[in-house]
Design a protein around this nucleic acid. Structure first.
Length: 488
DNA sequence: ATGTGC
């Protein structure tokens, strides 16, 4: 008996098992491509170039097992957003397009001991104060304006710098992926132009889908893990989503151009120039890895400064020290990174550049890289939905190492382009509706951004999370709903 | 995502 299939254009995907669809290996593909999705999500994923892109990815040297597209996947630069590609770190390659322009775009969630009742009636004061005190929008203006030495220190040391300079407490570091610092960072490999763009953006949200949202926990699905994460129903939490701003963007661009010029032989083997990659062991592979890790550190500092500023805003609005409100970092996860990780492939251990672009690390319980506080339950995974839908907290699932190199989805995933969104929605109407129907208060620098990020431009986050949970790569722990939101 | 272009 043959498996169910899904046909789109000239491609036939075979269902390997529930929620696992495979593009068979043909031609110059080095491995099959896999899409992890329900049929409804696969339908949406087929609407743009995602399937073509995830298939193209299988041509990269050193790609291991499968190229994988997550349930929230959509088209990106060369490599889909929602893609995972594990490329051999000895005889494979590293590809900036498979990390993304916004290096270490990511999210962090901060707990509080406030309840929704404590915040009701203060929503407008809170959203106004956050909007005034947390820099957002395109261009410059951050919480810290740094000189050259300081930028280098931030690039080298990440959240460790923030702790030493009064923007973090020591405990914050322990609740970040990689403890908020990549040792392999090499600031000397980040261009002067990138540093100049970053120096006045340290502690700034940026634009697009980046936001800061105050939320209330509406459901805890798993009491044991919920308790380990310090989450309970009706509790207020804060979610921060942003990345490495102009510094990361410039770094990606710098290395794409260098790699295209230097490694044309490899480029010519690939079906899409946007997948440009540097062979493992080459000078540019080392340089990009050092620079990317530096940009990763920059993004962690960025989210840290915004979180610490949020503590100060809450102190003013609720007239209490933040420690008394127990405003502790739950966890900070990266969405756009590559990392040398050791994985079991067949019966051997191999070192791989695991590229996660619009995908979240989701290590299960017991993994030595899960912070001690969560080691018995698994790594927290934070999945932001749209500003009308709320978000999820998951924990790394038991099957993630076998199926996805320890990864799951990163959000709801776009349904339509930004241009299309602006034709469908008007920012002011979206804001009015959210406030009238759901008591969600949104404040943004630009109405166009609100239209581009309207709830209707996103896939159904409940469906994305259902697939992750049923696959056992990231298990449902809690759900949140927006209270107020600021964006660029 | 982005001093909204390659």
């Amino acid at each position: 008996m043959s498996n169910p299939t899904f046909e789109v254009d000239d491609v036939t995907l075979e269902q390997v098992r529930e929620h696992v669809w495979e593009v068979p290996q043909t031609g110059d593909m080095r491995v099959p491509a896999r899409v992890l999705a329900s049929e409804a999500l696969l339908e949406e994923i087929s609407a743009d170039k995602t399937l073509e892109q995830i298939t193209n990815t299988t041509h990269l040297p050193g790609i291991t097992n499968h190229a994988i597209c997550m349930p929230d996947g959509h088209q990106g630069y060369g490599f889909p957003v929602g893609g995972v590609g594990a490329l051999d770190a000895e005889d494979g390659c590293i590809s900036p397009g498979a990390v993304g322009y916004d290096i270490n775009c990511g999210v962090r969630m901060m707990r509080t001991n406030l309840t929704y009742d404590d915040v009701r009636g203060h929503e407008e004061e809170l959203v106004d104060s956050l909007f005034t005190n947390v820099p957002s929008g395109l261009g410059g203006g951050g919480i810290v304006e740094a000189g050259a030495d300081t930028v280098d220190e931030i690039l080298a040391r990440g959240v460790d710098w923030a702790v030493e300079n009064g923007h973090a407490v020591a405990d914050d570091r322990l609740h970040c992926e990689d403890e908020g610092m990549r040792e392999e960072a090499d600031p000397s490999k980040v261009s002067q132009k990138a540093k100049d763009r970053g120096k006045n953006q340290i502690g700034s949200l940026g634009s697009g889908n980046h936001f800061l949202e105050v939320q209330r926990v509406t459901d805890v699905f798993d009491d044991e893990v919920g308790e380990a994460f310090g989450l309970e129903e009706d509790q207020i939490v804060v979610l921060i989503h942003c990345g490495s701003r102009g510094l990361g963007h410039q770094t990606c661009n710098d290395y794409l151009r260098k790699i295209e010029q230097t490694h044309q032989g490899l480029l010519n083997q690939l079906p899409d120039k946007e997948l440009a990659a540097a062979p493992a062991g080459s000078q540019l592979a080392e340089d990009y890895y050092g620079a990317m890790n530096a940009a990763i550190n920059f993004a962690w500092v960025n989210r840290q400064l915004i979180m610490h500023r949020t503590r100060q805003v809450f102190e003013r609005v609720f007239e209490r020290p933040w420690e008394e409100m127990e405003m502790e970092l739950l966890y900070d996860v990266a969405h756009n990174i590559a990392k040398k990780e050791t994985h079991t492939v067949g019966d051997e251990k191999r070192e791989l550049y695991v590229h996660r672009k619009g995908a979240t690390r989701a290590f299960p319980k017991g993994h030595p890289e899960v912070p001690k506080a969560y080691r018995d339950v698994g790594q927290p995974v934070i999945i932001p939905g749209s500003m009308g839908a709320g978000s999820y907290v998951l924990r790394g699932g038991a099957n993630s190492m076998d199926l996805t190199f320890g990864s799951t989805a990163h959000g709801a995933g776009r349904l339509m382009s930004r241009t299309q969104a602006k034709n469908e929605f008007w920012g002011g109407d979206v804001q009015d509706e959210l406030e009238a129907q759901d008591q969600i208060y949104v404040k943004a620098q630009s109405g166009a951004t609100v239209a581009e990020e309207a709830p209707g431009v996103y896939k159904d986050v409940d469906e994305v999370v259902r697939v992750s949970d049923e696959l056992g790569i990231g298990d449902k722990v809690a759900r949140t709903f927006p209270v107020c939101n600021i964006k660029g």
